[in-house]
Design a protein around this nucleic acid. Sequence first.
DNA 1: CTCGCACCTGACAACGTTGTCCAGGCTCTA
DNA 2: TAGAGCCTGGACAACGTTGTCAGGTGCGAG
Lengths: 349, 349
Amino acid sequence: MAETTRRADSAPGTRYGNRPTMKDVAARAGVGLKTVSRVVNGESGVTPDTERRVQEAIEALGFRRNDSARVLRKGRTASIGLVLEDLADPFYGPLSRAVEEVARAHGALLINGSSAEDPEREQELALALCARRVDGLVVIPAGDDHRYLEPEIRAGVATVFVDRPAGRIDADVVLSDNYGGARGGVAHLIAHGHRRIGFIGDMPRIHTAAERLRGYRAAMDDAGIPVEDSWMSLGATNPERVRRAAEDMLSGPAPVTAVFAGNNRVTVTVIRVLAEHARPVALVGFDDIELADLLQPGVTVVAQDAAALGRTAAERLFRQLDGGLVAPERIELPTRLITRGSGELPPAD
Amino acid sequence: MAETTRRADSAPGTRYGNRPTMKDVAARAGVGLKTVSRVVNGESGVTPDTERRVQEAIEALGFRRNDSARVLRKGRTASIGLVLEDLADPFYGPLSRAVEEVARAHGALLINGSSAEDPEREQELALALCARRVDGLVVIPAGDDHRYLEPEIRAGVATVFVDRPAGRIDADVVLSDNYGGARGGVAHLIAHGHRRIGFIGDMPRIHTAAERLRGYRAAMDDAGIPVEDSWMSLGATNPERVRRAAEDMLSGPAPVTAVFAGNNRVTVTVIRVLAEHARPVALVGFDDIELADLLQPGVTVVAQDAAALGRTAAERLFRQLDGGLVAPERIELPTRLITRGSGELPPAD
DNA sequence: CTCGCACCTGACAACGTTGTCCAGGCTCTA
DNA sequence: TAGAGCCTGGACAACGTTGTCAGGTGCGAG
């Protein structure tokens, strides 16, 4: 008689197991439901003796509070969402980890998903996270129109964009100085005597790619060097395409003597191509890569701090959550040129 | 009058925003609550006209279903948890991504957290995920006692361990052939004439580290080579410690002529040490590393397939969820020796 | 001895959704 | 045209938790 028949109305087989609830614990401990809730949440006002009885019942039944119900009642989930491009990319791992650490410090869990650079999938993911009622959202945009998030933001979902700016809405953004970094990197090559400098970057619809291209053009312009179309490759950064682009630039009557690589994936492929190439070619890459210092020559890069991006964004997110609303801000983090040899090679005409 | 006063009993300020509910949508569309539910879930039995009215109300109000409430009612969350060591480690990124892809194919979201190799934090995380009522759990163990998960598993949380076996409970496990891989790698060095071979690995309390050590010993034993203590370093794999260990092995009257590195982090540090070292020393590393082929010499490794580990584990998890209970199984994935030069160097006595 | 107070405890409603079940209106057939 | 059957729509309870509030107990002071 102590046991109530539960889940009488749900279809059989939809549930896995039959977890004890506070009600069950209360019955077993011979106390009221609310008293169990008090013990579970460490609220004051429970006799040590009562508390012990409840604890024993919890142990005996293997009870664990159902946070879904708690969320429903309390309105906050203590979890935040992260939408990024690809967890397997060595750039996003540390970023994600940094977001997680900040979340952890605020007692929140991190739910993340990869958009695979697909705007639709980004939207699908972000909205799924909102349906789970995450308290906040950190987004590395794949698309360029985020108006679909407006109702969510109005409803109180804290939102910060990282690495690339939000499209068509006003929101917090944390970026690296892509323009300045690329400009500095290319200027470095020019300072070492290069004039025919190739640029291999991602599709210009991706903000970071466009900014880096802009930096390249600015540096060339600063030096009064007219850029030839055949020096630039803007498109997908899969190895085959990058390889072909690099080989094209390096052949012909007036080949480039240096290459600026637009991101870590491009850099790796270009290194491979250069390794097979007879004449030495200078290289500066955007993003640092592991072991870059051990190659011959070491790879000069414009490094951005992925962890700092993630940390900054997450902290900004929790400031939104804790402190109420602040005006959206655009934060730009500096990049750092790390010289290791490949960027200091003189032109070999 | 149409608007009901809601959240009358909750403390002010606990909620962010005031999201519309199905009730609000129903009121606006002039239909019943359940009809809205039908439309939202694409259930049949709604007139096109009614559906249109409901859709309009949804648009107008910016309604999004509250999945917390849905979970509470339905009992399944369509999300799985992943507890790993460190998202920033290039080994776990692809693993995590593979789990995510499988989850996505099953319509589930992935919640993950890093244990930072701390058993307590692993437990805390895993139980937090259970409190969120994830349908399943993929765990890369940090600790060696997982009895704390027993009540959860009994309650129906599907569970699979990856990379390292579960401790003191019977559960599905997906592993790489650490023993065989290490044994093969060391045998490879022996086949190239080495006898004094160093081993630098992680703390033996970590299962993978212990297995790889066992493989090393077995290979040496097979060749009838007695192992000297000074050839082995078992401990934390931070760069300083590994560097010192490597330098010790390489000095003295009878230095090792080859090194077997127990994981990717160790390999990287050993490469650095060897690069500064005059005499050539052979090297085989466990785990593949990016750019290993571009170093001089290329780095020979025993590669494991992180993505395959993750995929296999996740598929196993969903088989548990879909097909009901199966007997726990231990799945071992093969490793692959990739020769690139460093492992084929002859001994330089 | 009684009143007041502090402290514990439990009944109850509500969070937003979905499953069940029934009512009413329609069509189709005899 | 009446009855049977189907389709649409809505009322209601339940999921497991927490906030509110009121009842009950024990103790000290007047």
